[in-house]
Design a protein around this nucleic acid. Structure first.
Length: 285
DNA sequence: AGTCAGGCAACGC
DNA sequence: GCGTTGCCTGAC
């Protein structure tokens, strides 16, 4: 793949690779350069490593053979204008959040690595989530070389199920080891059909199924569905979103009530709005 | 040294 | 239903 040629990937509207990678969805991309071109590389699912770069002009490049995988993963096919058209017309906070960072996209990750990563994210900061992802990949994932660097795919459910809870505990997972191991086992055995959940059209039903997993509550289920299943109506509420809704929207309710209000207020693409608000909240609150 | 962080489940009322 | 509490770990 290293000798594969680079091509320009088209996209509509605004896209910022750097901001999308920092927006709390993706935790394993590494800086990587090809010749003079500085970009990022990482594995998407179990494929050999992908490369993506963005020039100052905004131009996005990837390997030719990999262009469709990369474009889908980073949401380059999203019709941003149409998404924004579904947002509330008079919402100065959301308008400010979009203006603050219009280039963020909701990525579309492979379902398992997304779900598993968010299971390991509970009460963790970004740097630590990254560290855990890397450790799991290096210990239990398939290695791929790109240039002189080795990249690792996220371990599949069978690999983590086989590893055992105790071994996972030694990957700095703490109490999350049990959840990750149970989820991996349930999926590897077929007790939970992740593929069916990914394609389940009903958000409520998909969320209900995910929440049957130990360690998967509303927040993690919504993250998994928003970031891997294209369920843009899913609205994960973490401390940052709760903060911005409380301080800028004067919402004092919590939990399910807050969730219902948000979906009603922000509309069918509430999750996309959430991503702008989340980034905005983290930088300004 | 204690506190806290990008939640969840179990329990009490 | 709603509010508390314990939980692994590392960063500050």
């Amino acid at each position: 793949m290293a000798d594969d040629s680079l091509v320009v990937l088209p996209y509509e509207g605004s896209f910022s690779l750097r901001e999308t990678l920092k927006s709390g969805q993706l935790f394993h991309w590494e800086k990587f350069s090809i010749g003079e071109l500085d970009g990022f590389a990482g594995c998407i699912g179990d494929a050999s490593p992908s490369f993506i770069a963005q020039r100052d002009s905004g131009e996005v490049l990837s390997f030719s053979s990999d262009r469709e995988r990369v474009a889908r993963y980073f949401g380059l096919d999203h019709r941003i204008g149409e998404i924004h058209a579904t947002f509330p017309t008079h919402d100065p906070v959301l308008t400010a959040a979009i203006a603050y960072c219009p280039g963020i996209r909701i990525a579309r990750q492979p379902t398992w690595e997304c779900l598993a990563t968010f299971i390991t994210s509970s009460l963790k900061q970004v740097t630590h989530i990254r560290a855990i992802s890397m450790t799991l990949r290096q210990r239990y994932g398939v290695a791929h070389r790109l240039g002189d660097h080795t990249f690792y795919a996220y371990p599949d459910p069978a690999a983590l199920a086989a590893a055992g809870e105790e071994a996972l505990r030694h990957c700095s997972l703490g109490y999350r080891a049990k959840s990750l191991h149970l989820a991996a086992s349930a999926i590897a055995s077929g007790a939970i059909d992740l593929d069916a959940i990914e394609h389940e059209p009903s958000l409520a039903l998909a969320r209900e199924r995910l929440m049957q997993l130990h360690g998967v509550g509303e927040k993690i289920a919504n993250c998994a569905l928003l970031f891997s299943a294209g369920q843009w109506g899913a609205f994960p509420i973490d401390v940052w979103i709760e903060r911005i809704l409380r301080e800028h929207y004067r919402k004092r309710v919590k939990g399910a009530r807050l969730q219902q209000w948000a979906v009603k207020h922000f509309g069918p693409n509430a999750g996309y709005a959430q991503q702008y608000l989340f980034h905005f909240a983290r930088k300004t609150l």
